[in-house]
Amino acid sequence: MTKDENNGGIKRMVNPNRFGIERIAYLLMRLTGLGLLGYFIAHVYETSNILRGRMGWDDFLAMTQTTEGHIFLVLVIGMCVFHTGNGIRIMLGHGGVGVGKPARPDYPYDPASQNYRHKIGIYSSIVLAAAAMMYGMAVMFGE
């Protein structure tokens, strides 16, 4: 604990406990965003191997044909699908779409912005990501 701020920093930012599925979606969005950024950098490095000629290209591509490579690609598929689905939900929300209407609040003050539409959006993104990962596993490990 610091004297000046008492900010929890990243440790508190990534703690999804006690704030519902929306906070878990927030955490997953950050993690998948970082994961996709890492994949993007790795992808640029991977494709740059074509400068080493066909042999170099094939050697590097062989890494993705291993079990570890397949698991990595399955994770990339999951991250991509969740980030896309949840991203569309968040973009709509950021424009004020589907976040409810202002109204005089009644106890127990359930927030209208955390409504079933957004919850369905989050759960759908998770289910779609899981389905895409399973399909990816079936294709890559089913050979």
Binding site: E22, R23, V99, P105, Y107, P111, A112, S113, Q114
Partner: peptide
């Protein structure tokens, strides 16, 4: 993330 709205004791819903 919507956590602000979930803890508001007066139903203000800041996220909205």
């Amino acid at each position: 993330a919507g956590s602000c709205s979930q803890v508001c004791p007066k139903g203000v819903d800041p996220a909205m």
